[in-house]
Design a binder for these strands. Sequence first.
DNA 1: GACGAGTGTGTAAACGATTACAGCGACACA
DNA 2: TGTGTCGCTGTAATCGTTTACACACTCGTC
Lengths: 346, 346
Amino acid sequence: MSVTIREVAREALVSVATVSRVLNGKGPVHADTAKRIRKAAKRLHYVPHGGARSLITRRTTTLGVLLPELHGEFFSELIRGIDVCARRKEYHLLVSSSHSDRAESEEMVRAMRGRVDGLIVLSPDVRPHTLKANLPEQFPVVLVNTAGGQGAFDSLAVDNFGGAVEMVRHMVGLGHRRIAFLQGPAANRDASERLRGYRDAIAEQGHADAAVEIAGDFREESGYEASGRILSMKRRPSAVFAANDSMAIGLLCGFQEKGVRVPQDVAIAGFDDIPIARYVTPPLTSVRVPIAELGARAAELLIAGLEAGPGRRRTRETLSTRLVVRSSCGESDGARSRSASGSGYG
Amino acid sequence: MSVTIREVAREALVSVATVSRVLNGKGPVHADTAKRIRKAAKRLHYVPHGGARSLITRRTTTLGVLLPELHGEFFSELIRGIDVCARRKEYHLLVSSSHSDRAESEEMVRAMRGRVDGLIVLSPDVRPHTLKANLPEQFPVVLVNTAGGQGAFDSLAVDNFGGAVEMVRHMVGLGHRRIAFLQGPAANRDASERLRGYRDAIAEQGHADAAVEIAGDFREESGYEASGRILSMKRRPSAVFAANDSMAIGLLCGFQEKGVRVPQDVAIAGFDDIPIARYVTPPLTSVRVPIAELGARAAELLIAGLEAGPGRRRTRETLSTRLVVRSSCGESDGARSRSASGSGYG
DNA sequence: GACGAGTGTGTAAACGATTACAGCGACACA
DNA sequence: TGTGTCGCTGTAATCGTTTACACACTCGTC
């Protein structure tokens, strides 16, 4: 059925060893022979059998990517980043997404082992401990946005802390003194880091009473509900910093329904800079997370680890975020494009 | 380094054959022996080497997915659909995305062959002809949303035609008699099918002068520009049906900037039902494309083809779309949810 | 003209799994 | 007791590569 190296060898009147040498560019081969072999391989549409090759070379040139239930832009941007980098270095990508529970994720770890050279893991469900238990010693893994992976694995995270600090400083710079923070789920690491950044930056300002923390869970609905709670406060904050954009949008929606103007009556900011952020009215000031870069860097780290072999030092990197100023905090920079400002949607 | 079946056999005091039989559930093995083997395998964290296995079984239990430069929700939904189905049937996914040019796509076809049992191809760049040239005879392929793949491969498409017809009928039902169509790029198959549906549905109505076709290219900007051209027409249409949501949003933006009210002065509808569609003001009436279902069905078809073996009949399927009525056409159904109606964003 | 140093090529042994085939008890039946 | 059947297990061939090793040949060079 499938054409093998043996048939190419027969066609080119040489041994399989010579064919292999030509196709892998190793060892000295006469130019004429090489040309003959290449021609034969092309004519027969020969492609080496990956399994056989990986059996002997002990490499699959494939990276495994383990993802949680992820949606929209985050998912696609991340994969894009990983893919671009992997392809440049001639690696393939074995992807497994949308794991809802821990058992499933762990099952996938096992299924992937034996088919990939290394793993990029995003699922917060997968504990480093079980990774170690299910993988061979020294198996290269890059943990992305996962808590507590400092030990045996490389890890990569987004500077949620720094982004939050920057946002608070920006708000303070606009004159806000009482800035509320709409929290994410307590168990979520991104959320807790953002909260930590908020607290630090507020403390930095000196007036302790500036801090107002409101419960939320990252979903749009919780932002919507928070709007009511905020309006019923005795001392209303002049600005609300939501731990993510979805909640910020819910909040915006809630305020506007109640006739509260944004940003005139209250300023709002989010985190993530999801695509919709620029389309709402007013366009949302947010913190941009470099998703594609996160993916690309993860792939880079993994491949570097693969090629360096075992006994390598583990690294822990943090990617910085970028403040994206739109008009939901009252800032007007005058140079925004039509589609970015969304000026026509009101 | 990595533990092999031989070590499991030694540990369990049996031969490799027996280990293999137990782990694959074939052939009669004494219950005690089986238990001992399973225990040993678990203790050693044994996982079979995929390459070795695929060498002898001639299967990789992996599906290849070839994608063009794809963004956001479309990409993630599609992969999710494919992934869910593939995992249920115990297949893995080798993904290769964002191919910009034809040469690159074709290179990937070759790179994947030899590592996968079948291919799901979305890239319109990849011509069926080159697929045939670069793949073995009878290699299972499912073509998604690709023109002219009727011949040697299974193929799957979205019912762009039917969706467009349905939308026009909906508009007519709302009383519109002069309905303009904002076209997509001429070379794009989705676009041309939508145009065809529009024309058919308009013709169905009897008054030929109802048809007004305006050039566009699927990008938001082209929708924005079209708004000007429409307003300068002698006989303005009472409704505009854009070939995709991005253009519809550009159009909406353009109209509102010029003080034209939607839907009171002019109705607007789009196609695709992208997530932003429900967030603009007014929320956009659109045609929902079942992306995840498209992916899942593609995987299903491919796996069915794999398991049926060669000599199977090729199928050509079409997935139907669904009209999503929001308020940009003036329809009010009264039962819409807060977030779906977006009532708070104006 | 014998001898190393390259070149260019072939032979055959891995790699880790699956599986056809054979062997070995135990047991039933004639 | 011989014989066939059935259940369980082992031996060894096989899949398609890569690569260590060996071999043959051609050159200078002493």
